Amino acid sequence: MTDALDQAKRALRAELRERRQQLSDAQRAAAAEGVRAQLDALVTARGARSVSCFLSSPTEPGTRPFIEAAIARGIRVLLPITREDGLLDWTVASPGGEEVVGALGVPEAVGEVLGPIAVNDVDLMIIPAAAIDRSGMRLGWGRGFYDKTLGSMDRRPPVYAVIYDSELVDSLPRDVHDQPVTGVVTPTRTLDLPADT
């Protein structure tokens, strides 16, 4: 990655973090309910019986209401556990499951570790992002966990990133390792995107 590209990404991430931190508790609660409704509809439309998701941090669009609702519907939900080598292990979500703060300061589920290839069997991946552009390119938070995971999959299921409405942008700085997504889920809509691969 060039220095200019790295600096552009860092500046954009800092701006997005600041915007997220300025949201009120009421705005966050409304966003979480909107995300739950959008993800419920997406899972139904895709006929997904097994999904991967993530435990949202306090400033991310909330995923916990969706995770609890999916478990109650009998959907198998895998949650990520970060590894030192940059890959993700997975564990099965359980109702009211235990959480810890992971090595990167984000919430992670506690459970039986299934290993990186467990995600190969899901029908749908739901991942975090800082922003997505209209070609489907994703800006993550700079650690590369999801780019490595997506880049290593032989058969990738549909991948949807959860963001706030304002984080769908016209274009993003991109590097060769950046992985596209199938679409975005925001508190108000679900949008399929023409991945630019």
Rank of each mutant, 00 (worst) to 15 (best):
Leu114Trp: 04
Glu112Asn: 04
Ala118Cys: 00
Val43Trp: 06
Gly140Cys: 07
Arg76His: 15
Gly74Ser: 11
Ser50Gly: 07
Met137Gly: 10
Asp123His: 05
Gly47Gln: 11
Ser57Leu: 13
Thr63Lys: 09
Asn120Ile: 01
Tyr164Lys: 12
Tyr164Phe: 15
Phe145Gly: 06
Glu84His: 05
Val43Cys: 11
Ala32Val: 11
Ser56Met: 06
Arg46Tyr: 08
Ala161Asp: 09
Tyr160Asn: 04
Leu114Arg: 03
Ile75Lys: 03
Tyr146Val: 02
Asp85Lys: 04
Val162Phe: 09
Asp121Val: 13
Asp165Asn: 15
Ala45Thr: 15
Ile127His: 10
Glu84Gln: 10
Ala41Leu: 14
Asp85Glu: 07
Pro95Arg: 03
Gly74Pro: 12
Glu108Asp: 03
Pro116Tyr: 06
Trp90His: 06
Pro157Asn: 05
Ile132Asn: 02
Ala41Asn: 15
Arg46Asp: 12
Gly62Val: 11
Arg156Phe: 02
Pro80Thr: 13
Ala37Arg: 15
Ile81Val: 14
Gly96Pro: 02
Phe54His: 06
Pro158Met: 08
Ala131His: 05
Phe145Ala: 06
Arg138His: 01
Glu60Phe: 03
Ser52Phe: 01
Lys148Asp: 08
Arg49Pro: 02
Gly151Tyr: 08
Ala69Cys: 10
Gly102Phe: 12
Arg156Cys: 08
Ser135Trp: 03
Ala130Thr: 07
Ser57Ile: 07
Trp90Arg: 03
Glu60Ile: 01
Ala41Thr: 15
Thr59Val: 15
Leu139Gly: 04
Val92Ala: 07
Ala72Gly: 12
Ile127Gly: 10
Arg36Thr: 05
Gly62Met: 12
Gly111Asn: 13
Thr149Ile: 00
Trp141Arg: 15
Ala72Gln: 13
Glu60Pro: 02
Gly34Thr: 06
Ala72Val: 09
Val51Ala: 01
Ser152Val: 04
Val113Ile: 15
Ile126Pro: 03
Ala129Arg: 04
Gly142Leu: 12
Pro65Ser: 06
Ala129Tyr: 04
Val35Met: 00
Pro107His: 05
Asp40Ile: 11
Val92Pro: 03
Leu114Met: 03
Gly105Asp: 12
Leu42Cys: 02
Ser50Val: 13
Arg36Ile: 07
Pro58Leu: 04
Arg83Ser: 01
Asp165Lys: 15
Ser152Ile: 02
Ala109Trp: 07
Pro65Gly: 04
Leu104Asp: 04
Pro80Asn: 14
Ile71Gln: 06
Ser94Lys: 13
Gly47Tyr: 07
Arg73Ser: 02
Gly62Lys: 11
Asp123Thr: 08
Leu104His: 13
Gly144Phe: 11
Thr44Asp: 10
Phe145Arg: 04
Leu78Arg: 12
Thr91Gly: 10
Pro158Tyr: 02
Pro157Cys: 03
Phe54Leu: 08
Glu167Val: 02
Ala109Ile: 01
Trp141Phe: 14
Met153Ile: 09
Leu79Met: 08
Arg73Trp: 00
Glu108Pro: 08
Ile117Asn: 00
Gly102Met: 09
Glu108Phe: 09
Thr44Ala: 13
Leu55Thr: 01
Gly74Arg: 11
Pro116Phe: 06
Leu124Gln: 08
Tyr164Trp: 14
Phe66Asp: 02
Ala130Ile: 03
Glu112Thr: 10
Arg134Ala: 10
Gly97Arg: 10
Pro80Ser: 14
Glu60Arg: 02
Arg64Glu: 13
